[in-house]
Structures are given as structure tokens and as C-alpha cells.
Amino acid sequence: MSTSTLPASASAHDPAAEFLDRRTPLERARGVLHRYPALSPAIVLVISVVVFGFLNDRFWAPGNLSLITQQVAVVGTLAVAQTLVILTAGIDLSVGATMVLASMVMAQVTTTAGASPVVALLLGLVVGLAAGGLNGLLVTRLKLPPFIATLGTLNVYLAITLLYSHGATVRGGDMPAAMTWTGTTFPVLGVRVSTGVVLMLAAYVLVAFVLSRTAWGTHVYAVGDDRDAARLSGISVNRVLLSVYLAAGAILALAAWLQIGRANAASPNVGVDMNLDSITAVVIGGTSLFGGRGTVWGTLLGALIVGVFRNGLSLAGLDVLYQTLAVGVLVIVAVSLDQWIRKVRK
């Protein structure tokens, strides 16, 4: 802050500047982390990539890197939707169930009704929007806490999926090729990249753009930050919340398509538990569960960290249990870090 232009205020500012300088290095680090929420996950990702690379040469193999990105794609897409909701100080437990429901509808209409892929994808979008819209209405109209509302719809969507599909898996080979197109790969600098990964990245770019460059994005942060202040500032809080759940629903439809490609099938039993993985990615990515703070880029880093940890630990020959343990520890550390960082705010 420059004080040279205003002599009158210079004297009033000097003690403050002196005080700022007297912050301990730790406090200063906290200030930086507070201003750039994606910084701590970025550091963790770099360290974990280096460490796992040392532990096992195969970690760096192009095939392995390709595998990590493909493993991350679906959860990474769910996590974009989850980030939007969590930024408003909400949470969406139904992301996995919504995705599975949308993927079953998409897959089944192509096989049983012979629908074209375009129609199937549009229907999936409608399912995603309807599911997100119901969540949004429960939160804005019935004023249910998002945790409870989406815990309810998680079970509702799950039941509808099982009723609708009769528990049967639709194999990728039975669907038109476009439905599993998201699972196809192409080489980039020797690494095979799947179409799904590209679509996931597109979702990140789009949402990051909208959040940082549009008034809607600003309002999402404002609503999560302090709902009453947002309302008094003339923001229509309910409209913002509803639009967030709808946007999340649309992204979940995309995730459904990626899931069909990744699994080369649509199964009513796979992916429901990804809601927790998506929350994990968001939290590790530095987005605050209290809302108003975080970025989707942090979430992408968070999803990658989880993917790298799981992959690296399994390459190191450790049991799946240790992967789960490591992810659990990461979540606790990330949330503790967030609590500490938030103390910057008086």
C-alpha cells in the first residue's frame, strides 16, 4: 500500500505498516495461503508426484500417467459440480447418484428405445437438470439444509435408478459408439489422453471462467461468504442458489457420459459412492466448506492429488487400505489447514 500520495494519512498508516512487518513468517505464510487458496494443494501435488516418482520408476511411465488422468476424469467432473455447491456454503451428497441415474437413462434409451446418441445425451442433460433443480428447490423453497436435502435425494435418485434399470448393467458394446466415445484415447506427446479427460478439462475452463469473469460468479462467492450481506446488497440469493444446483446438474450429466466411456458400460451400482470422493477433491483443493472461498483449479489439483496418491501407493505395493487411510489423512489435514488459514479473518 502506498502512503506517499497522501501525507495526511501517512502518519496514520505507518504504525499499521510497522505492525504488518512484525508478523511472524508463519503468519505471513498464512496470509499468502489465504489469498491463493489453490497454492497449498499445488505444493502438495508437486511433492507427492516427486516422492512417488522416486519410490517407483514406473510412476513416470506414459501409460501410468495416462491411467491416472483417466481414473481422475469422472470424479474430477463431479468435483466441478461439487465445488459450485460448496462455494455457496452448501454440499451435494447426491452427485454420484445423479450421475448414475443420468447414465442409466442415457444408456437404456439407446438400447431399449433405440434413441440416437444426441437424443440420449439430451435426455441425460434433462435428468441432470431435473435432479439438480429438485435439490435447489428443496434448499431454496423448503429451506432444508443442503446436507439433509441431498441426503434425501441421494436415496431417492438411487432408488429410481434401481427401479428404472431393474439392477441390470448396459454393456458398452450394446450402445451406439458415440455413447462410449468419451473412453476413446489419442496420443499427446507419447501419453494417451482420453476424450473424457479433455471434456473434463473443458468443464473446468468453462466454470473457472464463469466464476471469475461474470457477475454470476461474483454472486456465487458473495452468497457463500455471507448470505445476509448478499441479500442486503441486492443479490437474489435464492435465484443464485437455484442456478448453482441447476448448473451442477448439467455438469453431472456430462460426468455420466464420461462414466459410460470410462467403464465401457452403464451400471446402476458403480459410482454412487463417488459423492464422497468429489467432496474429498474439493476439500483437498483448498475450497472452504464454509463457503465463499476456493477455486475450481484447486479442486482439479485436489482430484489429481487423490489420483496420484492412490496410484503411487498401489505402485509402491501397498494395500488398498493404505490408499484409503492416506486419503482420509489428507482430508483431515486439508480441513485443519483451512480452519487455520481462515483465522486471518478477524
Partner: peptide
């Protein structure tokens, strides 16, 4: 308002224009 209606995580300019960007 007595309870200041500002969004803490947004910057000064964004707060000045909040709701009428």
C-alpha cells in the same frame, strides 16, 4: 445497514459494485 452488508472475500471494488456489476 448496522450489520455491514459486505462480502468479506470479495475485494473493495467488487463490493462497491456488488449486485450491479
Amino acid at each position: 445497514y448496522q450489520t455491514l452488508a459486505v462480502a468479506p472475500s470479495l475485494d473493495v471494488a467488487a463490493n462497491l459494485f456488488l449486485g450491479r456489476e
